[in-house]
Structures are given as C-alpha cells and as structure tokens.
C-alpha cells in the first residue's frame, strides 16, 4: 500500500464516518462540527489530487465561511444543550432504504462503466494559470462564468440582507 493509498483510505474513512455522524447526531452543534471535519477531509482529498488552489478555497470558503455562518445561525435559533427527538422509525427506514437503494444503484453503475484513463501529461495548475484563465475570454477562458458568479454572489448578498432584515412594523 503506497502512501497515497493510505492517505486516501484515511480520508475516505473520515469522510464517510463524519458524514454519517453529521446527519445522525442529536446535538446540532456537534453536527456542525462533524460537517467541518468532512469538509476539511475533502480538502485533504483535493491536496492529494494536486489541486492546491481548490483545496485552499475549500478550506477558506467552506470550512471558514459557511460552517461559521451555520454555527452563528444555530446560536441564533437553537439552544445548544437541546437534543433532537429521535426520528420516527418509519421515516428512518424509508429514507434509509431510499439512500441505500441509491448507493447500490450508483455503485453498480460506476463499476459497470469503463472509464478511459488518458495518458496525457497533466497540466500545471498553478495560481497564475488559474488567474489568467479566469479573466481570459479566449480559448480556455472562463470570464463569462466568472462574471455570472460575481453577479450571483452580489444578488445573494443583497437578498440575504433584504430577507433577514426586520420589517419596520414587525414585532421584535
């Protein structure tokens, strides 16, 4: 077992275990922390794939941004000590069955499919190349998605403010 494989096994185990814990934990803050672990492990996977930039973004935006946001909203809306009620048996069984059926279906499909691995030399993906591509409108240029995502973020920001803002007449 090479180092890479070991790393993958560890990250994979961490991701699966913490994912399951995220969706089953009965304390909401713990859920959030488990989610953080999943996201960090995913970032580790990205490092493994040699995508340093994306891994960094994953850590900053996901782990640093979204999870913190989620924790804040938890603090605003829930009591930390509160434990969730146990989920109904029927609901658990049916949801679990659906999820397991989905897993089986996808995995069997994946295993049946032949992926043609190429032998092309990997392109160097350093920051400079990414930056240039983002603002390039020629071939391999992503200026349009870049602009679209900028507008989306702006709109989301405004929308979040408008929605969350207290109305003047609304009671506190």
């Amino acid at each position: 077992m090479t180092g890479n494989q070991l790393m993958f096994a560890i990250f994979g185990m961490l991701i699966i275990i913490f994912s399951i814990l995220t969706v089953t934990s009965r304390r909401i803050l713990r859920s959030a922390v488990f989610l953080l672990f999943v996201l960090v492990s995913t970032a580790g996977l990205y490092f493994m794939l040699n995508y340093q930039f994306l891994a960094a973004v994953q850590l900053t935006v996901y782990a640093g941004g979204i999870v913190v946001l989620i924790i804040f909203s938890i603090l605003l809306t829930s009591h930390i000590s509160e434990k969730f009620e146990v989920v109904g048996m029927k609901k658990q069984i049916f949801s679990g069955l659906a999820a397991i059926a989905g897993i089986i279906l996808t995995i069997s499909t994946i295993l049946q499919t032949e992926f043609k691995a190429t032998e092309v030399a990997a392109k160097e993906v350093d920051m400079e190349a990414i930056g240039l591509s983002l603002l390039n409108y020629g071939e391999n240029g992503f200026v349009l998605p870049f602009e679209v995502i900028s507008i989306l973020l702006l709109a989301a920001m405004i929308a979040a403010i408008v929605i969350a803002k207290k109305g003047k007449t609304q009671k506190p």
Binding site: K91, F94, S95, A98, A101, G102, L105
Partner: peptide, 16 residues
Amino acid sequence: QKYAFVFVTSALALVL
C-alpha cells in the same frame, strides 16, 4: 420532506 422523498425515489426509479 415527503415531497423530497417522492422526488428522490422517483428519480431513482427513472434512473433504474
């Protein structure tokens, strides 16, 4: 969640 359940199972059924 009932809607979501129907959606997911139906999507799986369609895939199948």
